[in-house]
Write a protein that binds this DNA or RNA. Structure first.
Lengths: 180, 180
DNA sequence: TTGCATATATTAACACCGTTAATTATATTG
DNA sequence: CAATATAATTAACGGTGTTAATATATGCAA
């Protein structure tokens, strides 16, 4: 007889600990032994609740994407698309480590891409649905997100632009060029 | 008395072996032990020629960027900017692992970013210099590369779009939207 | 409550990794 | 040839993910 409730609770303990580590110290600090210490469990106990460390990490990543979505949609600045997109970019500027982990780290971003593609598509769709203006040409939203993600990639991985203010200026200019 | 020529040659042996591994099997397969096997040297000998494995990898990355630049500029399709940009994208579509390594992998892309930023800026500049049309507004080239890099990021890490043909169609459409 | 079966947690171990110190082999020079 | 400088190797350390074997806790029937 398994105690499903207890199992779920312990699972959540591991997830929460992993999320904390990922947010504060990044993926490099995440290890089975570290999560063991942080939760009080042995490092091997994790393997009773997750297939491997990747599974634990993936669960966190989907959680973070959900947080991103909620953060964007609850930021009641306006329903103008440029403000929604700015909120999207802001979330990841706030947590550059999460952007790297979810979108750029080949060890994770590339794994089970269908799951993450679905979730990111969901976010993109939610943003353009929430917007007050509609775009008939579906390539405009795609181009817009490619441009923003390219900018975020450059910012988090190559520090180009170097600081936050410059990033926001560039983002604004790019949105204007796209007539967004 | 050190034999500089001999040293340089052995250094090049390690670099070549590492480049082969990176191109064929990717960064995950690169290790000191593996390069030792591939070259016939002991794994520790590498440390007589490189500070650490990161240095070896970085040398390879700069080499690859140089290859990319030469590949783009020697592809005598035309001097139209859209063809040059297509050649740029093609290089990394051909070697997705290299794109991931150089631009998206946080372990490498983020390290010594100034060195790589310089080199990538050099490529971007070379492309727009070789182009037959000139852009007065400097934000257009920046936006263009952000869009292409966003598309490449999505393609290599999330398989969106799923195949090469689709990628090329999307690239063409995005260039047209940007009036490039 | 006791005893037992089941479920869960822990420890120990294995195979990797990067890196370094100590040791051995090889060149070079007097 | 012998002494010295240089380079390559082996052995070791501390880290990683993961698994098998072992210990502990839990749930339940008698």
């Amino acid at each position: 007889m398994v105690n499903q409730l207890k199992q779920d609770n312990i699972r959540r303990i591991f997830i929460q600990a992993a999320k904390n580590t990922l947010k504060s110290e990044g993926i490099k600090a995440l290890s089975a032994r570290e999560i063991g210490k942080a939760t009080g469990f042995s490092y091997a106990t994790i393997y009773n609740y997750f297939k491997d460390m990747n599974e634990l990490c993936e669960v966190c990543m989907l959680d973070f994407l959900e947080e991103c979505k909620e953060s964007v949609l609850s930021s009641t600045i306006s329903t103008e698309i440029k403000d929604l997109l700015k909120a999207y970019a802001m979330f990841f500027v706030q947590y550059p480590g999460l952007y790297v982990l979810i979108f750029t780290d080949p060890n994770y971003a590339g794994r089970f891409y269908n799951k993450f593609s679905e979730k990111t598509e969901e976010i993109y769709k939610a943003i353009f649905d929430a917007s007050s203006t509609q775009y008939k040409n579906p390539h405009i939203p795609v181009l817009t997100f490619n441009a923003i993600n390219g900018l975020l990639l450059s910012y988090v991985n190559r520090s180009t632009p170097t600081d936050f203010e410059e990033f926001m200026v560039l983002l604004k200019e790019q949105m204007e060029l796209l007539s967004i």
